[in-house]
Design a protein around this nucleic acid. Structure first.
Lengths: 191, 191
DNA sequence: TAAGACGGAATGAACGTTCATTCCGCATAT
DNA sequence: ATATGCGGAATGAACGTTCATTCCGTCTTA
């Protein structure tokens, strides 16, 4: 119990520092200090820095996926489902900006490369939900007849770009705007 | 003349190595070897590594902007102009994948942060062309009445996502598909 | 109950490696 | 012969990781 606390302290500290300063600006010594533990202690909980970083990514990804699936129903109309997933995604990331930043750091790093390679092989993930949605949409002729990866790009690309703007303070994303944006994404993919 | 050649060799080598392996995987020694010069020589042409990297970014950005402006006419209809810029951008980046990778590396690094801050202040850039386009579109009621940054996100987000897929080998972007994608982006922003 | 012994958790100084940068001797050209 | 350009070994800073040592809670024993 006590040890779980310490482990979580380390993860939390790593999360905050890496999200804010990137992997460059997050030496073990700094993470240890923020977590309130000795540098060596980190190696009692994680084999090495890479393992810590990968583990942290898994946790964040898990929470994100759980969040967007909440209240999702595969029975509802396509558009409604799309709006649900999109708004849930945006809302969750806005509520947890550090998660978004961490995910971005992770993707744009050597770790991200390995991740992509892995996903190439094992094609089952959050994408499942969206994949299913897009495939149905094409079959039912509600969506443009384009390759799946184009639909992903049209749907996620704008959201990621907006999140960046939001975090940098360029943009203010309130509920009204979020809804308009997801609708616009739908206009992009719908037939 | 001889010195210019050597300078260009260094820039080219840095470009290729950073684009392929990221800043992590590009120590001065490696760049020097690829460029066919001694490590110390690099410091005859660039004050330090940061200056080299920033200078390289300026050159790449300059070429990119020149490429998309070629053949652009502010007189033509809005949609036609948008299609021109979008396709020119995608085509150029596909033809120069290393440029795209370098730009991405740069943006997702401490350098990128400084860049953003600078652009916050001095709001004149490639964006000018797009900014003008979007503003006109809103005035003429051809585009959705959304904040400018949303239009940027809806237009560029998908293109960047697609470029990533393309470079990673997920996607094959031929001329037909490029056109369809830009059209889909237009559907996203048009009223 | 109190004293002592024990084991695992925690620590941070020390080590080895990696890197940007500097420096100095050599080569080339005038 | 002198000045300029060049290369790559040398340097020192920064970092991840290790490990001998300390710390602390628990169990044992009288």
């Amino acid at each position: 119990m006590k040890s779980l606390n310490k482990r979580d302290e380390i993860l939390k500290a790593a999360m905050e520092i890496i999200a804010e300063r990137g992997f460059h600006g997050a030496p073990i010594a700094v993470i240890a200090e923020k977590a309130g533990v000795g540098a060596g202690t980190i190696y009692r909980y994680f084999e090495n820095k890479d393992v810590l970083i990968i583990e942290l990514y898994r946790e964040v990804e898990g929470k994100l996926l759980a969040a967007i699936q909440e209240g999702y129903s595969a029975e509802k109309p396509l558009k409604e489902r799309f709006l649900h997933l999109g708004t849930a995604l945006l809302r969750y990331l806005i509520a947890h900006p550090l998660y978004f930043r961490y995910i971005e750091q992770y993707h744009n790093s050597p770790y991200g490369a390995r991740l992509r390679r892995d996903k190439m092989l094992k094609q089952a993930d959050n994408h499942d939900l969206f994949k299913e949605l897009f495939e149905q949409g094409i079959v039912f002729q509600e969506l443009k007849e384009l390759p799946l990866f184009v639909h992903f790009a049209l749907a996620f690309g704008p959201l990621i770009a907006l999140m960046r703007d939001h975090i940098l303070g360029f943009a203010v994303l309130d509920d009204t705007l979020i809804k308009q944006v997801i609708e616009a994404c739908w206009d992009g993919i719908k037939r």
